[in-house]
Nucleic acid binder design. Sequence first.
DNA 1: GGGCTGACTGACG
DNA 2: ACGTCAGCCAGCC
Length: 112
Amino acid sequence: MKTIRVFPRSSASNNLFTRIYALVRKIPRGRVATYGQIARALGMPRGARTVGWALRACEKNIPWQRVVNAHGKISLRPTAGFQTQRARLRAEGVRFDRSGKINLKKYGWQKI
DNA sequence: GGGCTGACTGACG
DNA sequence: ACGTCAGCCAGCC
């Protein structure tokens, strides 16, 4: 039996979530960031999975589509947002190669 | 406190 | 370049 939380119970973690969301909102249009990159910026060098976990419950007003994995690809997720994410990014001018990968050197946020 | 899960990552073959 | 594997970390039971 799998219980799905849309948001963490503890208010302490809400602060972490808030920081993650705030950072994601700063990603410029037409650019992408990786989970690890965001985690690092928040002082959690190995907390990439936690970032992904947080985005699982993201609200609709944040540009979650601009977060991809370190390989430059869209991560699989329980919900069916794969196509949506790719469409949104393409609408922002982000190009995908044949294998559905993004050139992080070109579209990556800041350094990588 | 112990154990499991996951929108991850870097290393290997 | 692609599939596997072992670490990682916060949250939940």
